[in-house]
Amino acid sequence: MSVLELRGLTKSFGGVHAVRDVSFEIGAGEFLAMIGPNGAGKSTCFNMINGQLAPDSGDILCDGKNIAGLAPRDIWRLGVGRTFQVAATFGSMTVIENVQTALISHARESYRLWRPAASRHRTRALELLRQVNMQDAADRPSRELAYGDVKRVELAIALANDPKLLLMDEPTAGMGASERHGLIELVKRLVVERGISVLFTEHSMDVVFAFADRIVVLARGRLIADGDAASIRDNVQVREVYFGTGKTFAGASA
């Protein structure tokens, strides 16, 4: 059974269709990339799934439950984690406090007024930090971290509610080539270990072709291709609207 299923998702802004009748699904444990030109509707699609936007029509089924139009926090409670295109932490907190805040929220303890937060879920928070290799930085102010490390902490936060689906908006944006591969390898490992599904958008074709199990392509708000790396690479339409000749990235040469 699919973890997430989009059915006829449509959204327009001021009469302009940003996303038009998009349908696809993500299977359990699948690593799915969503690519397409700027303005193709990827972000709109993403923001409808994570609850920041409500679709005009269409359904978003998460384990069979329609989550279209729910608030981001409610979608999170259903087991959908997310990371942001521009990574950031809660800047006034230490690294571990960031993760603890997410764990506290997951345990529905955010309105507790008395027992200090520092003693809550610390072991579990350290364990999550260990999984992303950040345990040594646990008590450092999070705002001092290098960007690549911020991405890791954000991943630990996203894993705090044991998600079954992880939404990652351009997870490697702003990173150098080797950092990109390091981060995505880490995600891929965690995904396999925990059986999570991942939907991610990405402009780095190197990453997409190396890691994605399947690729969906959006252009002008419509789904124009859905398939494995090889079939997308050879798709004439995708080449025309998105790849170009491929001389600005490695790995896509026909």
């Binding site: 999170w76 809660f90 907190m93 997951h106 303890e109 507790r112 200090p116 937060a117 509610n161």
Partner: peptide, 20 residues
């Protein structure tokens, strides 16, 4: 207490706080 953390999280980044 947790409430203070939640309040600061909301101040630091409302979007991220909602996302957890």
């Amino acid at each position: 207490a947790p409430f203070g953390y939640a309040m600061r999280a909301g101040r630091d980044s409302a979007l991220r706080a909602e996302a957890i």
